[in-house]
């Protein structure tokens, strides 16, 4: 019973969107607090780790809600729709540039050879930099699946709806992402790391 009361007190994303469609500022404020960081870091890693582009794209995404809140069908799941819109913005950016986003070679990170053995006492900051570089080395659609699944914690089914692919394709992309990252991070993610 208390859970039911709590769920009533905390509005769902879809309820917030209904209120935004009625022009309620507090609803937009709440929705921004829920999604701004997620979308910002998603753009950041999908657009070559550019803070400036992440800022601009996050702003553009929320401006779409402000300008055309009725574009969202409140019968749908909001997070799926929102990530799908974000994905379309990223695709448009790739098309605009007419090339894939820059894929920095892993060896550039601190000039450490990839063949180096496991470094159990590797500094956490350096290790994080390796992970960032390795994720950037993934192909965009593999990276999108990996980030949505492990960074954002979305289910395979929801990812398949976001990127408009069958769940089997999502699983396949996740498989290749893990395999690739396992190779690239073999020096960092040892059994004792």
């Amino acid at each position: 019973m208390p859970d039911h009361k709590q769920s009533k007190a905390i509005p769902t994303d879809e309820e917030l969107m209904q209120r935004i469609q009625q022009g309620q500022e507090s609803a937009f404020n709440t929705l921004y607090d829920r999604y701004s960081q997620r979308m910002y870091r998603y753009f950041y890693r999908m657009l070559g780790q550019s803070a400036e582009m992440a800022h601009d794209f996050t702003q553009e995404l929320f401006i779409k809600i402000i300008e055309q809140p009725e574009a969202f069908d409140t019968q749908r799941r909001f997070s799926t729709w929102f990530y799908a819109v974000a994905g379309n913005l990223i695709k448009n950016e790739y098309r605009r540039k007419a090339k894939q986003p820059p894929q920095a070679p892993l060896d550039d990170a601190h000039h450490t050879p990839a063949s180096m053995g496991a470094l159990p006492d590797l500094d956490a900051e350096v290790r994080q930099a390796y992970i960032e570089k390795a994720v950037q080395a993934l192909r965009p659609h593999h990276r999108a699946c990996f980030l949505l699944r492990y960074q954002e914690g979305l289910a395979v089914q929801e990812i398949s709806e976001i990127i408009d692919c069958p769940p089997g394709t999502v699983k396949s992309r996740l498989h290749y992402s893990l395999k690739k990252l396992n190779e690239l991070l073999s020096c960092v993610l040892g059994p004792n790391a």
């Binding site: 910002y40 390795a134 980030l147 492990y150 993610l189």
Partner: peptide, 23 residues
């Protein structure tokens, strides 16, 4: 590897000015 993906969720964060502009 999966945990390394989860560790990416901590950063980065959007600047406060972004929220002010949108509001």
């Amino acid at each position: 590897v999966a945990l390394s993906g989860q560790s990416l969720a901590d950063a980065p964060t959007p600047p406060p000015s972004l929220k002010a502009n949108l509001m």
